[in-house]
């Protein structure tokens, strides 16, 4: 009797979340996938066209550029972000007067609304008047750096623009940092004291104790970041570079979808691009999961 009641209570408590999940995530997901096979402009009824959208995507040079950009961004930004978050967590996990302020500083950029963050960087990266350019040109002559080279053309050169978007993403590691900090602080302190007694150097401790103990969480965060990286490039790319210096240097898949849908009114095509992005995400997660499992199995043997 009580078991049934327990189950009913559980169901009732889960209900609001499940409702939200269905309405806000699963239903739009399903609609997107179906839309990907139609031609739809929000004004006239959708028209079924099968896989035409996907064939068109394959031939679309702009989409191909967006795809490569997104993959490159994930490949470069994600490991960098994790490394920075981990380094900060390891540096700042001990109690001290300085650590508290430093931790807040590390988390702050993530707390800033994305639009405000993007607009701030628009100013920072301004080629002539922005602080970064001013600092880079300091000490140099005629607008060159101290070493006599031209400073990076953040907003006008394709490669430098991509670097700028990656640079912007390196500071929003607040969530990852907080998680890694919590994990580091939860590691048993007596194990570290023992290491001190065994005269282990900082590097030994990092390699033999900290890294293996934090590795499971790091892998999970890697997976999470890889999923998110496809999305959080959207706002900076839009606000700061508006798709980037030609040719579409910082157009990522989300930006491509946004443009195609809301500026060109091709919602079916945009849905197809989004579906490709979703498929990529699933593939990335599956791959990482498999690698993790294989690694664990090897280790346990």
């Amino acid at each position: 009797m009580t078991r049934d009641r327990g189950r009913r209570q559980l169901a009732m408590m889960l209900a609001p979340y499940l409702l939200g999940l269905t309405v806000l995530v699963l239903a739009p997901f399903a609609v997107t996938v179906v839309l990907a096979f139609t031609e739809y402009d929000l004004i006239r009824p959708p028209r079924w066209i099968g896989t035409d959208n996907f064939t068109a995507l394959a031939e679309d040079p702009i989409f191909r550029t967006a795809l490569v950009n997104s993959l490159l961004f994930a490949a470069v930004a994600v490991p960098l972000r994790l490394t920075i978050a981990l380094s900060l967590a390891l540096l700042l996990h001990r109690r001290s007067r300085f650590a508290g302020t430093a931790r807040t500083a590390a988390v702050l950029p993530s707390a800033v609304p994305e639009i405000a963050y993007g607009l701030l960087w628009l100013w920072l990266l301004n080629p002539l008047y922005g602080p970064i350019s001013q600092v880079l040109r300091a000490g140099g002559q005629n607008g060159l750096t101290v070493f006599g080279r031209t400073p990076p053309q953040w907003l006008t050169d394709p490669v430098d623009a991509r670097a700028a978007i990656i640079l912007m993403s390196l500071f929003t590691i607040g969530e990852t940092f907080v998680i890694l900090l919590a994990v580091r602080r939860s590691l048993p302190p007596d194990v570290y004291e023992l290491a001190a007694l065994e005269d282990a150097t900082g590097w030994d401790v990092l390699r033999r104790i900290t890294w293996p103990l934090m590795r499971p969480v790091l892998v999970l965060l890697l997976i999470r970041d890889a999923i998110l990286s496809l999305q959080f490039s959207f706002l900076p790319a839009l606000v700061v570079t508006d798709g980037g210096p030609p040719p579409y240097a910082t157009t990522y898949i989300p930006l491509f979808s946004y443009r195609t849908a809301f500026e060109y009114l091709r919602y079916g095509y945009a849905a197809a691009a989004t579906a490709v992005m979703l498929a990529l995400t699933v593939a990335a997660v599956a791959l990482q999961w498999r690698l993790l499992r294989r690694h664990e199995a090897l280790r346990d043997r």
Binding site: V31, F37, T38, I43, P45, P46, R47, W48, G50
Partner: peptide, 22 residues
Amino acid sequence: LRRLATLALCTLLTATAGTACA
């Protein structure tokens, strides 16, 4: 099947989007 799917989609979108199809 195509027609059916389009009809279903249209219904769904109509339900959520009001009078888009009319």
